[in-house]
Design a protein around this nucleic acid. Structure first.
Length: 379
DNA sequence: TCTGGGGTCCTAGGACCC
DNA sequence: TCTGGGGTCCTAGGACCC
């Protein structure tokens, strides 16, 4: 059996665990200026605060709302401890996000999944003060839906053989992969409930959802063959984006922002001994239109000398005159293991590259050591 | 006081190769 | 000379997830 764990209002729960005064109050974690609500307490939701609602609007719907700024280091720490508990029950744990994951209890016939899940739920509450919901089913998909069905602090078990019956009466958007767009499209053609997708003739469904139709119908019938993966592997891209407090029309300012982002991302690449082959710049204009441009190198890199000259060019290609920019983003994709010293044979170019790489890494390490002394705290 | 930030995956068209 | 078809890579955009 597979268990899906879903923390309830995770960020807010962590804040409440750290500061019990916040319990029982309308609390949200979110940004101030043009930010959005990332997590809202049960009390806040009663006022109509939901995610991702603009913070400004949330404050309007619920004037007494306490908005806390997120502390992602703390959330990551709680997350790690939460999944450490799960690993005491089974080595087959797959984290899918900071507050969600699967674990497979299948192999041990002496373990009753429900009893084990209850113990885990209790333990997370006792030791972390975090409320989680758990879904138990024969596959990932059904376990995930089950865990989200009756939050908070729920434990929903779907007995083997009843997957399809369980999903049938739910509205389509409960299926993972059915977001606002597809949901609306399905409704347009009269498909409102999951049972209707399960029973729809395939040619009809294919007309509506294209190549996705087969998988969608499998899911609607409660079928899913994915396994719980203990090691999800490395990230496939590194990126950053920033929404400005006010829309920006200054190209130099945006270029400066891109440089800062590039520095940070290249540091991350080097730290993880990765290099990227593709760089993408994205602008979001004041009308919420996203425009992006990308360039690929013949070989992966993580060096300023390669990346910096590209930024003005990418910005120029993405830039539209007379339109102000609300967001700028930079992303590195097509990641590879970085080539580091000791690789043979070395031609002149790659030798220079290696020296640059070592110098850059050294600089990163020096910065990492110096910063805590300079600032009085570590990152 | 409209609409964040971190990602993944898919698609479609064009270039290019054989 | 006016033309096929398969394969791969690259780019831009978009849907979706938490």
């Amino acid at each position: 059996m597979i268990v899906h764990l879903d923390a309830y209002a995770f960020f807010v729960s962590v804040e409440q665990a750290e500061n019990p005064d916040l319990r029982g109050k309308p609390v949200a974690v979110g940004g101030e200026l043009r930010g959005i609500i990332a997590s809202a307490s049960y009390e806040a939701r009663k006022f109509g605060v939901y995610t991702p609602m603009p913070s400004a609007k949330a404050k309007k719907v619920c004037p007494q709302l306490i908005i806390v700024h997120g502390d992602f280091r703390r959330y990551r720490d709680y997350s790690r401890r939460m999944f450490d508990f799960a690993e005491k029950f089974t080595p087959f744990v797959e984290r899918t996000s900071i507050d969600e994951g699967y674990f497979d209890l299948g192999s041990n016939p002496h373990t009753d999944p429900v009893t084990a899940a209850k113990r885990l739920q209790q333990r997370i509450w006792n030791e972390l003060g975090i409320t989680v919901s758990l879904g138990i089913a024969s596959n990932k998909l059904v376990a995930q839906v089950a865990s989200k069905l009756r939050k908070p602090n729920a434990l929903v078990e779907v007995p083997a053989g009843e997957e399809r019956t369980f999903l049938a009466p739910l509205e389509c958007h409960w299926l993972p992969g059915v977001g606002p767009k597809l949901s609306a499209r399905l409704r347009e053609v009269g498909l409102r409930f999951i049972w209707q997708i399960a029973e729809a003739p395939m040619p009809f469904l294919a007309q509506v959802t294209g190549n996705y139709a087969m998988q969608l119908q499998q899911h609607a019938r409660g079928l899913d063959t994915r396994e719980v993966i203990a090691d999800p592997g490395d990230a496939k891209s590194y990126g950053m984006q920033e929404t400005f407090g006010e829309n920006v029309t200054s190209k130099p300012f945006i270029l400066q922002t891109l440089h800062t982002m590039a520095d940070e991302l290249m540091s991350k690449l080097r730290r993880d001994r990765k290099a990227a082959r593709t760089v993408t710049v994205r602008l979001r204009y004041n009308d919420m239109r996203d425009v992006s441009h990308a360039i690929s190198f013949p070989a992966a890199t993580n060096l300023e000398t390669d990346i910096y000259p590209l930024l003005p060019r990418l910005l120029r290609e993405t830039w539209e005159r007379h339109t102000s920019v609300r967001l700028v983003g930079l992303r590195f994709t097509n990641l590879q293991e970085a080539q580091i010293q000791g690789e043979l044979p070395l031609d002149a170019a790659s030798a220079r590259r290696t020296r640059q790489y070592d110098a850059a890494r050294l600089l990163d390490e020096m910065r990492a050591r110096a910063l805590p002394l300079v600032r009085g705290h570590s990152l």
